[in-house]
Design a protein around this nucleic acid. Structure first.
Lengths: 198, 198
DNA sequence: CGAAACGTTGACCGTTTTCAATTACAGTGG
DNA sequence: CCACTGTAATTGAAAACGGTCAACGTTTCG
């Protein structure tokens, strides 16, 4: 219902796999766009480096997601992509893909759907930032991530990474975690969170 | 180079224009999606109302932009659209448009391009929120908006609206404005800002 | 002309950021 | 197998900053 078989958009001969070690760069800001990448395993952090040297996480891609759709129409990447843990990516050559898009309506529609989803997700993230209180923001984030009943979240990356994603310091996150736990809003076992009530 | 002639995607007979007065709603969260809207004049604010009653600006569309692309694949709107000043919108019926998209590859590609741009813009907004200091964030925002040399920004809406867009209170914005001015980073004449140095 | 929105500034308070220090833990190489 | 090292996790205390509340001048528009 979700996967559209991105890898089937182009004949396998056109694919090219690539492995990335933790911290390795898939592409860099300013580099010309050569391909559209699909993440098979691991997670990729898209980040931009501000003038003052600060790094900003724009997005964290998870397995199954397609990267750089936004770059399909751009000449150069507008951010860095760095592997967060070892990654496995599939590269679809830009030129070939563009041709496929111009030919097959289904392919284009599928791309649009992907992009539409990203727009929604980004707006959700943006909305999150408008919650000023750290505990409430974290709770809101957990609600977005949660699944099942009772709703639970299994975090698969360090909290300090989560912290930058939601725009807080890791200290603030730990404190918020404690507050929520003390208030009985969540239950915590290491990186497994269970939401209570509400 | 920018406009793709959205209104030419469907025969004019299928269009339907609509006028909105300041504050009027184009659509409301939860409402079924009937059409894809294009903004001809004025600006439309997409906002969501949080549980606690706070309103959150998700996006501000300007003339020429297409709204609700993200909703083309959704059953219901996920935010409210309220006119900010008098607006003129063109409505393209969802059903007809979907058919066009499935038929004409060019149409789909154009849609993808629009969505891709939105993704970029949203990421930029998100990046902005990671700047914790109010003056620096405002400055960053001004840099994004600026054009010409020396770079200037002519703000066409009240500062309090700008404030919510960048995630600050209007008071904080005024103070930041003063700080930047005192520091010589900007020059201000009402709503006309000129960036200095750096 | 009057009301409502915009613009502006001050003071105070609460929270988060910072800075700092300590523990826990996983991976590495001797 | 165990020090050794770097990252993650935690907690404390103080400082900084923006939010909130409040008051007031100004502009806009019906």
């Amino acid at each position: 219902m979700d996967s559209v078989g991105w890898d089937s958009l182009l004949p396998p001969a056109q694919h090219s796999a690539r492995e990335l070690r933790d911290g390795e760069l898939l592409f860099r800001q300013g580099e010309p766009v050569r391909a559209l990448y699909m993440l098979r395993a691991g997670s990729l952090r898209l980040l931009r480096v501000l003038e003052d040297g600060t790094t900003v996480t724009l997005y964290v891609a998870r397995p199954g997601e397609t990267l750089a759709e936004a770059s399909l129409f751009a000449e150069h990447y507008h951010c860095d992509a760095v592997a967060q843990g070892n990654c496995q990516v599939l590269a679809l050559p830009k030129a070939a893909l563009r041709q496929a898009l111009e030919t097959n309506p289904q392919t284009s529609l599928a791309l649009s759907r992907q992009l539409a989803r990203q727009v929604r997700d980004l707006r959700a993230q943006l909305e999150l930032r408008n919650v000023k209180s750290a505990p409430l923001r974290l709770l809101a984030w957990l609600r977005l991530q949660a699944a099942g009943s009772p709703p639970t979240v299994q975090i698969d990356r360090p909290w300090n990474v989560v912290a930058t994603e939601i725009g807080l310091t890791h200290e603030a996150v730990y404190r918020a975690l404690n507050q929520l736990q003390r208030a009985g809003q969540i239950e915590r076992r290491q990186r497994l969170i269970t939401l209570r009530s509400s």
